[in-house]
Amino acid sequence: MISTATNTAPSRAERRNFQRVRVKIYGRYMLEDRSEHPCQVVDMSPGNVAFLADQPGQLGEKIIAYLDHIGRVEGVVTRGVEGGFAMTIVASERKRDKLAAQLTWLANKHELDLPEDRRHERVAPRNPMSVMILGDGRQYQCRIIDLSLSGAAVELDVKPAIGVAVTLGTMRGRVVRHFDDGIAIEFSVLQREETLEAEFSGRRQA
């Protein structure tokens, strides 16, 4: 009887032990047909993850996701959720431990409201004109209203959806807010002052 229980109970017990963390992480995932699609993590534990996605996978389909701050995650679709899908993460115990540490850090980061960290001084660049590149390769001239180490406000003729991956100059990021004349983006990684200065001060190089 004990052996039967150990065959059927672990996944449910594991799910209880894995604390789900509500985080906003962006990324891309690949379906079995090798097509890639953008996604946003709604909540995640070392054993499961729920995505918002326009192209949800089929039940039982294997998924490979590449997530900001997390890296590569593999899994299997277990159910559909409103606007997306959930999957069980397939990973070694070591990988799950690493995921738990990453999620703890991300949960604290979001508790402190760091995505658009107002503690980073926002400045107007010397050279405000730049180019915004969307994930599908479309390019638009834009004007940077202000920027900080963590993000930028950009005047733009189009308004990519919130969560969409964009590149401002050479800085990768995601759209986090819309306003009347443009969008706010959050950089994928915290930038250095020297990098921003080199990128948006006229690009004079030695």
Score class of each variant (00 low, 15 high):
A153K: 12
F179A: 08
I70M: 06
G83E: 02
G27E: 04
L59I: 12
M87F: 13
V189P: 01
R79Q: 10
L106R: 03
S35C: 07
N17C: 11
R118D: 13
E155Y: 06
L99T: 01
L103R: 02
G83P: 06
E194H: 08
T6L: 14
G137F: 05
T78A: 08
N7M: 14
A184M: 15
D68P: 02
A206R: 09
G84V: 02
V21Q: 08
L114T: 00
E93W: 00
R204S: 06
A13R: 15
G202I: 07
I183N: 11
A100D: 09
P160G: 04
I25D: 02
G75T: 01
R174Y: 14
Y66E: 06
C39T: 09
N108G: 07
F200A: 09
E121G: 04
P38K: 01
A9E: 15
L112I: 06
L59V: 10
I145Q: 10
I185D: 11
I145G: 04
R126A: 13
Y140A: 07
S45E: 13
R16V: 11
Q102M: 09
M44V: 09
V73E: 00
I162K: 15
N108I: 01
G202L: 01
T170Y: 11
A184L: 12
N7T: 14
D180R: 06
I89E: 05
L156K: 02
L103Y: 01
P10E: 08
E186Q: 15
V21H: 12
T167N: 02
V77I: 09
L106C: 06
D181L: 07
C39D: 01
A65C: 07
R12L: 15
M171C: 12
I183H: 03
D136P: 07
D33V: 07
I144E: 03
K24N: 09
L190R: 12
N48P: 00
Y66A: 00
P128I: 01
G163K: 08
L156F: 05
A153D: 09
R204N: 13
D180M: 11
V77E: 09
T170A: 08
Q102V: 00
E111N: 14
N48R: 10
R177E: 15
M87Q: 05
A86I: 00
V154I: 15
Y66G: 00
S92F: 05
R126Q: 15
N7P: 08
V81T: 14
P10G: 14
P160V: 05
G137P: 01
R22F: 08
K62L: 04
A206N: 12
V76Y: 02
G137D: 06
K62F: 07
E74H: 02
G60V: 03
G151A: 12
V158P: 03
Q55A: 12
A101C: 06
V23N: 01
L52P: 03
D97W: 06
G27W: 03
A161G: 03
A184Q: 13
D157W: 00
R172Y: 08
L103N: 03
R118V: 14
P160F: 02
R143K: 07
R118M: 10
L31I: 11
M87S: 03
R72Y: 02
G163F: 08
V49E: 00
I25V: 14
G80V: 07
K62W: 01
G137Q: 04
